[in-house]
Structures are given as C-alpha cells and as structure tokens.
Amino acid sequence: MGGTEQPDVRLRGVVKRFGAFEAVAGIDLDVAPGQFVTLLGPSGCGKTTTLRIIGGFEQPDAGEVFVAGVPVDSETTKRHTRMVFQSYALFPHMTVRQNVAFGLRMDKVPKGEIGARVEAMLANLGLSDQAEKYPRQLSGGQQQRVALARALVTQPRVLLLDEPLGALDLKMRKRMQGELKALQRNVGITFIYVTHDQEEAMNLSDVIVVMEKGRIAQVGTPEDVYRRPANAYVADFVGETNFLAGNLAVRPENVLIGDVIPSGAARGKGMVRAKSFLGASTRLEIETEGTTLVATLPGAVSIATGDPIAFGWRDEDALHLPTKDSK
C-alpha cells in the first residue's frame, strides 16, 4: 500500500493494556484512503479496542496513531473520524432528523445548510419518510441507517463501524452488507469495519486485517487471506481448512473425489462418514487413516454414507503454511 499517498490512518506500535492484560499488543497498520478495511478476528482479540483507539475513545499505552497525518488525541473534539456504535447509540429523545442534524449543529454549520444536508442524507439512505419518528419507532435496519446517516452527514474522512450488523437477523444482515458496500463506494471515504464473521469480511472488504490475541496475523485482500493464509491460524479462521501432514493444508472445495481426479493428484482412499446436501453444494466428511477430510462438491453427488471413496487435490491447490515455530 505504498506510493506517495499519505495513509488515512496509521498505527505504529500501538499497545493498550487493561490492568496487566494486553488487549492490543503492538499493532502497525496503514490504511489507504477510500478503502474498505475490516478488522477480523474472534471475540476478545482486541478489534473493538483498536477501533476505539483510532476513534480517540481510548488512549494507547504505547505507540502512535495518526488520522489524515494528524496525531489522534482523545482530548481534541474535532476529529476526522466518526464512529457507528454496535448499539447504534441513537439519541432516544431526538427524532431521526434531530439525530442526523446533531453533529452539524455541534460543528456550528449555518442553519439553512444543516437543513439541506440533513434532507439530502436522509434521502440518500431512504429515510425521508422516517424523519419525524423517534429511534424506538424504527426497525433495526432503519436504526442502523440513521446511525450511518448521523455519522456520514458530517463528512468524516474515516468511518469506524463496530459490528454494525451484529444485532440484525441473517436476511437483513445480508441486505445491509450490500447496502454498506454500495454506500462506501458512493461516498468514497475510508471505512474501518470490525466483525468476527469471516464471510461478512470477505464479502465487504478491500483489505482484511486478521487479528489474533491483540496482534495482526495477516493483512491482505480477501483473496490473499483465503488463498495464501500467512499461517495455520489464518487458514483456520478464514474459511474451512483440512490440515494435512507437515505444513500442508487444503480447502474443502479443492478436494477432488472419484474418477475426476487427474493423474498425479490422487492422494488416497477413505470412506464417506457423513454427507449433507446444502443446495448449491454437497459436503462430505471422508474418514481416512484416523483423520477426517472435508470435501465440498458443487451440486448433488450420488455417493452414499459408508461408500469407499478415492480423494485427491492438485498440487497448486494445496496451501503451504509456515511451520508453527517459524513465526
């Protein structure tokens, strides 16, 4: 992510402790302008804390944070970042319009301009009909959009989002993912997004930052992270993985079975222990030499549980992970 362009967000050696516990244990990260960057990792790995440090809500115990080249100081009120909270944090005693206007009022934007900008933002997010309602009268998805509108109307350089879809049901989540991605392209600003859902991260991101216990495990595009995981932890967390002997691994969708295995790709024989039809694909668990190999095959397959089966994979599809102690 080099070039001469200044990063929107830069973290250098950032550490945050709670008591003796290091929630963030030394993070270096550059985020280029206009990117959709996701902090991905299991619960408790320090994603929220990192985001809150970028937003100026927490002071790091060590390291430096710059947004738009300016050091972040939690005392300064004018910042280039805005946060969309996991709970949305909409002001319950204000209407949608008043919520969205709040930041502009605080920035002392002239009244007429506030009205126009709020209307435009509400229209942009399909909230014009809800302007006079109170947050409690809205659905989860609508509240989510108000939170986005309230942050975006102030035209920040960087928008911080902490698991913003976590409270929505699956269908709504999928829909909002699409809307979020479109919105980010539309406004063209940097989004830093926190989630523990790897599918969501793959779907949304230009860049994924995989985190593990307060550290960065890998930074890369979704394809990088999936196809070239930096280590076993990333391979395991992002997508499903069959770990093989040595430092090899193979994704279930790259496992071949039966007579489609080209010469040189055959790896062994086993027995189908479980089979589940998932609609677009079929998932097989193949038992071989005391271990289980998972294969996902497109469509339906005519193999039954208990059948003997040959399996294999192409050399180029195997993942070469660094050995555990090479880190």
Binding site: G55, F57, M83, F85, Q86, A89, F91, F102, M106
Partner: peptide, 21 residues
C-alpha cells in the same frame, strides 16, 4: 448506555453540551 455520551462527543459536542443535550 454510555455510548450515547461517547456518540455525542464523537459528533463534536463539548462536555457541557453533552450534559445539557
């Protein structure tokens, strides 16, 4: 919800403003 006050601060409100509003 403590994030209400944080959200207000994030949107540029001073401590006094947060209290009143």
């Amino acid at each position: 919800d403590p994030s209400l006050e944080e959200a207000a601060r994030d949107l540029g409100a001073s401590t006094a403003r947060i209290f009143w509003e």
